[in-house]
Simulated assay, not measured.
Amino acid sequence: MDPRSEVLLRQADLFQGSVLLVGLPADDLLGRLPDAHGWCWHAGDQAALEARFPGRCHFGVEAPQRGFDSAVVFLPKAKDLTDYLLNAVAARLAGREVYLVGEKRAGIEGASKQLNPFGKPRKLDSARHCQLWQVTVATAPEAKPLQSLAQTYELPLAEGPLKVVSLPGVFSHGRLDRGTALLLEHLDKLPSGHVLDFGCGAGVLGAAIKRRYPHNTLTLLDVDAFAAASSRLTLAANGLEAEVLTGDGIDAAPMGLNAILSNPPFHTGVHTDYQATENLLVKAGKHLKNGGELRLVANSFLKYQPLIEEHLGSCAIKAEGQGFRIYQAKRG
């Protein structure tokens, strides 16, 4: 069981009523707290929780409409996402309790100060390298619309400026990361047909592809509901249309693709996780048509070329720069 869940269960008497678990891990916590409900935005965690606890976990970027007597926020990686989540639950819990739980190495001690706007925080427990904090909401804040927290910036592209809209918690929020910047410089000679932007984040690659190759069919896929929402905002800001999906990795992607482009993530929370990318490299060939192309940017220290060649075919390094490489391979 996740150590944060273990800390909650040390204080299980506090969570016997209708408690909302925000950003909960995909473990047995819902089974141990039978009146609790979850709010999740990670498609993989949601699928695992729905399989075990049907109807007890809400998926999306907005708080569930159902009522609850208290809420526990599992500390996410991004500070601005923590602010959004705390505000969303505190807005509905005047005079009641909001809890914040997280690992020490994720910064829970400092994050506890984000409870200050709602009342006087106090530490309830410290165990399993985690801490549990609690605040009684003195005055319910006004709920902030998620879109009001979006950050927008422009990219100068050959086809004209591209507006990028990102939401709290999305990879590279409010700025262009170096890997995507390198891949944007090498979108030439992309196959015609159906193109997938895998791990789409704020939709930078997908929007740029649709702008340059308007006749291509485009699908954007991410495991994170906040990323999918950001991609929809980016597409709308540029007058572009494409399919945006949430799903747990390449298994959720369409078949018969002509190209897959990706700047794949390798972090889950504060932990490093290469599984989604390795799964992509192993299975990309099943989703590509014959002659279909995989084009991927990754940190140079990640040795992906042998894995690509084992499962897809001959792999070339198309470009290198600032610690990144672009790999290009075609299904034979």
Results as ranks from 00 to 15, higher is better:
residue 139 T to V: 15
residue 158 A to S: 13
residue 137 V to P: 09
residue 196 L to F: 08
residue 147 Q to K: 10
residue 113 K to Q: 14
residue 164 V to K: 00
residue 130 C to H: 03
residue 106 A to S: 15
residue 115 L to S: 08
residue 117 P to I: 04
residue 131 Q to D: 14
residue 136 T to I: 12
residue 110 G to V: 01
residue 146 L to W: 12
residue 120 K to N: 13
residue 106 A to P: 02
residue 177 D to H: 03
residue 141 P to A: 06
residue 157 L to N: 06
residue 108 I to M: 03
residue 200 C to K: 04
residue 182 L to G: 01
residue 179 G to C: 02
residue 161 P to Y: 01
residue 126 S to A: 15
residue 189 K to G: 01
residue 157 L to P: 09
residue 156 P to D: 15
residue 137 V to I: 14
residue 171 F to E: 07
residue 121 P to M: 06
residue 111 A to D: 12
residue 175 R to H: 11
residue 198 F to M: 08
residue 169 G to I: 04
residue 167 L to V: 04
residue 124 L to T: 09
residue 185 E to F: 00
residue 111 A to T: 10
residue 168 P to F: 00
residue 198 F to K: 02
residue 133 W to M: 09
residue 153 Y to S: 06
residue 154 E to L: 13
residue 180 T to G: 04
residue 178 R to Y: 02
residue 126 S to M: 07
residue 148 S to T: 13
residue 194 H to W: 11
residue 202 A to N: 12
residue 164 V to F: 01
residue 137 V to Q: 07
residue 204 V to R: 00
residue 153 Y to Q: 08
residue 191 P to M: 01
residue 105 R to Q: 12
residue 184 L to N: 08
residue 151 Q to S: 08
residue 123 K to D: 14
residue 116 N to E: 12
residue 118 F to L: 13
residue 129 H to P: 08
residue 173 H to Q: 15
residue 198 F to E: 06
residue 190 L to P: 04
residue 146 L to F: 10
residue 174 G to C: 09
residue 143 A to G: 11
residue 119 G to C: 12
residue 135 V to T: 10
residue 193 G to W: 02
residue 122 R to T: 14
residue 150 A to Y: 04
residue 131 Q to R: 14
residue 115 L to D: 10
residue 159 E to P: 01
residue 190 L to V: 07
residue 144 K to L: 15
residue 124 L to P: 14
residue 145 P to S: 03
residue 153 Y to V: 06
residue 108 I to C: 03
residue 113 K to W: 13
residue 163 K to I: 02
residue 188 D to C: 00
residue 159 E to I: 01
residue 170 V to I: 04
residue 172 S to N: 13
residue 157 L to V: 06
residue 123 K to I: 09
residue 115 L to H: 09
residue 165 V to L: 02
residue 149 L to D: 07
residue 155 L to E: 09
residue 178 R to F: 03
residue 174 G to S: 10
residue 149 L to A: 11
residue 175 R to Y: 14
residue 200 C to L: 09
residue 123 K to S: 11
residue 150 A to R: 02
residue 105 R to N: 13
residue 142 E to K: 10
residue 137 V to N: 07
residue 119 G to R: 08
residue 170 V to R: 00
residue 115 L to I: 09
residue 130 C to K: 02
residue 161 P to C: 00
residue 138 A to E: 15
residue 113 K to V: 14
residue 203 G to P: 10
residue 111 A to V: 08
